[in-house]
């Protein structure tokens, strides 16, 4: 049984780390706030879930750590998207508008969304 768990956990952890790296790169390089928010959103939900899953598959003597990790996963899956949503709404209300790729001019928005 543990023969399957060990590589599976490694795969999950590797995938999670890869997503973290790409998300971080996007977070650093993207032009405007909303693109960065998207990149950061990816790392917060998918990469976190993968890494926690990978940790859960690690062999431990008692089952308590697995349960705690499940709690953390549930809480993060609840709170991260809400936080990103609240962040986007607050930025929009504060007047931050999406920019074009080189981050200079505001993108022309359909009139309804001004």
């Amino acid at each position: 049984m543990s023969a399957i768990l060990e590589p599976l956990s490694s795969v999950c952890l590797l995938l999670g780390s890869f997503l973290l790296l790409t998300g971080a790169l996007g977070f650093l390089r993207f032009a405007d706030f909303y693109a960065r928010l998207h990149a950061c959103g990816v790392t917060e939900t998918l990469a976190t879930a993968l890494i926690i899953l990978g940790l859960m598959l690690q062999a431990t003597d008692s089952a308590l750590p697995q349960f705690k990790l499940l709690l953390i996963l549930l809480f993060v899956l609840f709170s991260s998207p809400t936080a990103s949503h609240a962040l986007a709404k607050a930025a929009w209300n504060a007047g931050v508008r999406p920019r074009d790729r080189r981050g200079r001019r505001d993108i022309a928005l359909p009139p309804g969304d001004r």
Binding site: F75, F78, S79, T82, H85, A86, K89
Partner: peptide
Amino acid sequence: PHTILQIVSRIL
């Protein structure tokens, strides 16, 4: 009224 925030927080 931040409905989404209030609903999620009410659960948490």
